[in-house]
């Protein structure tokens, strides 16, 4: 029976590229299947949350630090991007770069002093930061336009075609950035840096003993995480085309945390599936939308208690993958 399990998992492991390619093809060609504007919008929204989940996963899943301030990094990325498209117009893509840079910088400023706090205190500090950013956005009128917010945010233009929601451009634009985010997370996961993060998550002290500069590693991860949240912030701004201080609330941060915990901290496929389920369901069942946060709350509690490894448990169940040409006798 156990052998069968392993064979099944190995079979899945082999076929995963085929399944992955099929899913990718389906996802990319979604606008051609006559998907309505609304479906495309929901899909784009799912993608943006997927980027956010990957971003929080870097710090929560890999390094074991929970942040509830990701909405603030989105806000900083979005506002910086907007300022550099309106007040100092430098073009869409450079402005997007500036937005990401500002988010990363904010990650550094918040992370450097606060990441030495122990778990729960760090959560509180990020919550406070999130509220603070909101108040600053409300009061710094010359930059953020205050509570009035900023409308008609420019959309990217590629080869002379404006990417809108109706022509599917926004969707593909999101997919591009989602792919970039997945690649970055993948690269980090299998790098020396990534292994250091996992070591910190499993045992901070032991990691320190092993010669890992834990503070520097955590702060670096946080900066990457904030930068990805900045990407999501810019995408969000170009999709909704309207940003005001109340756009980026604690609710968003909580939803992201919920996705990460539901999807299984550390697992990337889990992240994507979990985003799809949690963001699509309130749209699918609008009658249940009222109960949305009750369900999110339940998920947080149930997952933390019963399945901390998440819905799709990471790699732990698979047998260690041996290099080519090496065999062991399984008896």
């Amino acid at each position: 029976m156990k052998n069968f399990d392993i064979k099944l998992l190995e079979g899945l492991e082999k076929s995963k590229y085929i399944v992955g390619a099929a899913v990718a093809l389906l996802v990319i060609s979604l606008p051609f299947f006559g998907a309505s504007q609304y479906l495309l919008r929901v899909a784009t929204n799912i993608g943006i949350y997927a980027i956010l989940a990957l971003s929080l996963n870097l710090i929560t899943g890999y390094a074991g630090q929970v942040s509830l301030g990701h909405a603030a990094f989105m806000a900083i990325g979005a506002y910086a991007f907007i300022v550099f498209t309106t007040k100092y117009p430098i073009g869409f893509f450079p402005a997007m770069g500036v937005g990401i840079l500002f988010s990363a910088l904010a990650g550094l400023i918040l992370g450097a002093p606060t990441l030495r706090l122990s778990g729960a205190y760090f959560v509180i500090a990020t919550t406070g930061f999130s509220e603070l950013v909101k108040v600053i956005a409300l009061n710094w009128k010359s930059v953020t336009n205050g509570a009035t917010g900023i409308r008609n945010i420019i959309r990217p233009t590629v080869f002379g075609i404006e990417l809108t929601n109706a022509n599917g451009g926004q969707y593909w634009f999101m997919l591009f950035w989602l792919a970039v985010s997945i690649y970055i997370c993948y690269a980090i996961k299998y790098s020396k840096f990534g292994r250091a993060l996992f070591a910190i998550r499993d045992d901070d002290l032991a990691a320190k003993m092993a010669g890992i500069n834990t503070s520097l590693t955590k702060v670096t991860a946080f900066v990457f995480s904030a930068a990805l949240a900045g990407v999501a912030g810019v995408l969000y701004a170009t999709m909704t085309r309207y940003v005001e201080p109340n756009t980026f609330t604690m609710d968003i941060s909580t939803i992201i945390l919920c996705i990460v915990i539901f999807g299984g901290m550390g697992s990337m496929v889990g992240m994507l599936i979990s985003t799809f389920l949690l963001i699509a369901f309130p749209e699918a069942l609008r009658a249940l939308a009222m109960y949305r946060f009750i369900i999110y709350g339940l998920i947080l509690i149930i997952m933390v208690r019963f399945r901390q490894q998440g819905l799709i448990s990471g790699v732990s169940k698979l047998p260690y993958k041996l290099p080519k040409g090496v065999y062991i006798d399984r008896g």
């Binding site: 389920l277 949690l278 369901f281 699918a284």
Partner: peptide, 17 residues
Amino acid sequence: LSLVLALAIALSLVACT
């Protein structure tokens, strides 16, 4: 428990599509 949770959400999606 977690399977039930996942199923419930998956079902809701099917219902939608």
